[in-house]
Amino acid sequence: MIIAQQKPVKDIAAMISDCNKVLFVGCAGCVTVCLAGGEKETEILASSLRIMRKLEHKPIETVTFTATRQCDPEYIVALDNMVQEVDAIVSLACGVGVQYLAERFKDKWVVPALDTKFIGGATEHGVWEEKCGLCGDCVLHLTGGICPIIRCSKSILNGPCGGSQYGKCEISKDVDCAWQLIYDRMTALGKLDKLMEIQPPKDWTKSRDGGPRRAVREDVMIG
């Protein structure tokens, strides 16, 4: 899932400082699960901004709504009537949701309340970690199910580099060396020989370096 975190309230307040009525749109997808932009967070943010603006003697009127998903046009249609009277829309979705809202509501000032951080999962309640680099060409079958693209700080394909020590990465003692983990797992699986293959440079056209990507399933498209 996509992991996001809320920006400081003051930063969000600055984006809408000249607005009198604002629509806060939460998203019931990933950002609800990572507790950044669900219904509850949306209402907390709206309430915080109402208090803040009242203290500044510039009261703000808020409307809140949480879409099933902001990354699907069909779920943001529901906002059509709500946006009419507002000066701005604050999206509590990932960067995708913000853009979908901006595309649909062309004459509205649409701003992000969250920083979209990474895709990953939860290790315990309240802790999430990055697991996939979205490279578009998965290599997990070569690396024992541990992603070297995002979990190695240098995205090295034939690691570990010389900075790996005591299982940790050279950038921090709090960061595991992905290649140590890969080595350990491949050893446990009796597949160490697979690591002897020199991995060629990646085809980065399948990642962001090839420009914005698109995925199509023609069999489900209906004209």
């Binding site: 990646k202 980065w204 056209t205 370096d209 090839g210 420009g211």
Partner: peptide, 13 residues
């Protein structure tokens, strides 16, 4: 120019 025009189109930019 973007690397897609060159002789190493699969490189990172």
């Amino acid at each position: 120019d973007h690397q897609q025009f060159g002789n190493h189109p699969t490189s990172k930019n």
